[in-house]
């Protein structure tokens, strides 16, 4: 459980995080989505007390992060996989974390196993690690204390496709066991696959939030028919906005079951009926951040 309330962080005149309010629920994966420089990392750093908030507050498990007696045992944090001492071996890095949390050293080997770092790799210094290996080590550090909450900033960066799949399954399992996961990304597809809830941020402000289902619904339904004009007319009569999408398809701003009912009532044969493309979220994302993102002006 993470609660962020009216959080603001300014740097001089720049409002890096501007009145951000959202919560991440237990048992669910909350995706924190935004273009580069949108304020995701700053928000996460404020949550764990690395950056002081200008105003507003953030609590984890009902308490301010600094009031957690042994944070590593309750909250697993990975903000930057590169932020590890280059001259320390992977195993020593984990041992330091385990020691700080007061865990038995046997946890180190368990976690190395879990994140698939081999014994030889664990003996190498972090300096020689690839970004993917650093991510695995960072995930291991976050999980070693068996926390209830995970806060992960761009954890999929540098992982190969198999690694991304592994990470996805890991986080799904964690949430299914009742854990809270907050994960940030600027990669829409990655978030779309894993998240239950979404918080979309652009230029420090929240531009959309809700369950993935709700946000996808607002992207509409794609319906294909051989009698496209009749269908368009029927939808219009029911007050559903629909726009042409290619020669024989419509994009309706309604859920699929409503569109199906309309088609049935109108006696229009359908050849396809589904939620608008997987790219729906991407379109939403680009649309929502168009006036706030760097590429906005050019696009």
């Amino acid at each position: 459980m993470i609660d962020v309330t009216a959080l603001t962080r300014t740097y001089g005149g720049l409002r890096a995080v501007d009145d951000v309010t959202f919560s991440a629920q237990p048992g669910r994966v909350t995706g924190f989505l935004g273009p580069n420089g949108a304020g995701k990392s700053t928000t996460m750093r404020v949550m764990v007390g690395l950056t002081p908030a200008t105003s507003g507050s953030a609590t984890v498990l009902g308490r301010k992060y600094a009031d957690l007696p042994n944070p590593g045992r309750e909250v697993g944090v990975l903000l930057d996989a590169s932020a590890q001492h280059a001259g320390r071996t992977g195993r020593e890095t984990l041992r330091v974390a385990a020691r700080t949390m007061g865990l038995p050293m046997s946890r180190v080997d368990e976690l190395l196993d879990l994140v698939s770092l081999t014994g030889t790799e664990a003996e190498r210094r972090v300096k020689n690690y690839s970004l993917g290996m650093r991510q695995r080590l960072g995930i291991a550090t976050a999980l070693i204390g068996d926390p209830e909450v995970l806060i992960l900033d761009e954890p999929a960066n540098g992982l190969d496709p198999a690694g991304i799949r592994w990470m996805r399954d890991l986080l799904r399992g964690f949430a299914n066991k009742g854990g809270t996961v907050l994960l940030s990304s600027h990669l829409l597809h990655e978030i779309e696959v894993i998240a239950d809830d979404l918080v979309v941020i652009g230029q420090g402000r929240i531009v959309a939030q809700g369950t993935k289902a709700e946000l996808l619904a607002s992207a509409g339904t794609l319906v294909r028919s051989t009698a496209i004009e009749e269908l368009a007319q029927a939808l219009e009569q029911r007050g559903v906005t629909a726009v042409a999408s290619g020669r024989d398809a419509l994009r309706a701003e309604a859920e699929a079951d409503l569109v199906g009912q309309v088609a049935l009532a109108a006696g229009v044969p359908l050849t396809e009926l589904r939620a608008a493309d997987g790219a729906g979220l991407e379109e939403m994302f680009l649309e929502l951040t168009a006036d706030t993102s760097r590429e906005g002006a050019a696009a």
Binding site: G49, G72, V77, Q84, R88, A97, T100
Partner: peptide, 14 residues
């Protein structure tokens, strides 16, 4: 300099 403080100061936020 090594940025290990990111981990150190999240594990011990004091």
């Amino acid at each position: 300099s090594q940025r290990s403080g990111l981990t150190t100061f999240t594990l011990v936020p004091h």
